[in-house]
Write a protein that binds this DNA or RNA. Sequence first.
DNA 1: CCTGAAAAATTACGTGA
DNA 2: TCACGTAATTTTTCAGG
Lengths: 196, 196
Amino acid sequence: MENLDDTDMRILELLAEDARRPFSAIGEEVGLSGPAVSDRVTRLREAGVIRRFTVDVDRSTLRGGVPVLIEATIGPGEAGSVRETLATTEAVEHVFTAADGTVTALARVPEGRVRDWVAERLGDATVESLDVTLVDDVRWTPSVGGGEFALECAECGNTVTAEGTSTRLGGEAYHFCCSSCEAKFTDRYERLEEGA
Amino acid sequence: MENLDDTDMRILELLAEDARRPFSAIGEEVGLSGPAVSDRVTRLREAGVIRRFTVDVDRSTLRGGVPVLIEATIGPGEAGSVRETLATTEAVEHVFTAADGTVTALARVPEGRVRDWVAERLGDATVESLDVTLVDDVRWTPSVGGGEFALECAECGNTVTAEGTSTRLGGEAYHFCCSSCEAKFTDRYERLEEGA
DNA sequence: CCTGAAAAATTACGTGA
DNA sequence: TCACGTAATTTTTCAGG
């Protein structure tokens, strides 16, 4: 699949907000017809960008396991299999594998003897260290990642790329697509400051 | 809202698998009509059990930030505000607050100077320790109840899978692993009814 | 990617257990 | 209270351009 355009990103964002929103309503937002949105969503699914439509359930309203954060340092070469084991365990919701081989997971486990429960599931992998912490609060913000990184140049509005610059004025961070935009902006800013 | 019954749980599971599945199709699985499922879903939303319908996006196919795991130990009493700050930051997807005040978060951040990026967002909270690790792999398994809460066949006690059936007898929903179990059960049920 | 018609799903509402 | 039918409305799918 060729690269996603802004419209695709927009559609993903809208679906992240409400996955059951009608395609025609999405179409209105992005300036397309319903069928056109449907086509794009189909393409996104086939390309594997959309893995699934799902539901965010407030698990605190459900009786169920206690949420715990599992942090395990795994022997070299075994992180992959531990990750798979955890990922396929029903009670495990998230598994993050760090580049250094640490595996962090969030799971809902039966109360009592939580550590045993975890150790049991880790089986005979070489677990160098194991931390299990009770979790108090779980937040999830589904976002496709557009916002924060689609930084706009504070001067001209263009997208800020890796070549851009940043500066801090009056405690606020400003980003620019190039140094000339930055110069222009700071100039104006300083003149305003003087005036005030 | 009174406690959720097995049918509600089943509906949540089916929605977790595919949130755009038609209610009528869900109804077939759980032995209800489409409108009845719609009613229940509405109730679940109003009760806050369903927070939102959303989409699971494979972020590795999107250019965007680098996924990092942030682990911060926060000064007493400040965990709450740090959690809120992170949760409302676009690039942050997950925030887990441990009972001991440690805040763990998964975020997608711009490449380069990652630690600065994080520190900047943590502002002036008392951060006692801060770990930022590059993440290699992220898994998410949306599941509602976890294994231990799976439905049992009313006849034989086996786990009810997607191939199972459901029926409604005397206002109560019963679930079965297969149609022969269902036949056996309803037979016995009806004989009991006659007797009574 | 659009329009427009056919098919399907969702919602609204009255009825009954 | 909860679920079902039916009907009205909306949404999705499928042509053809």
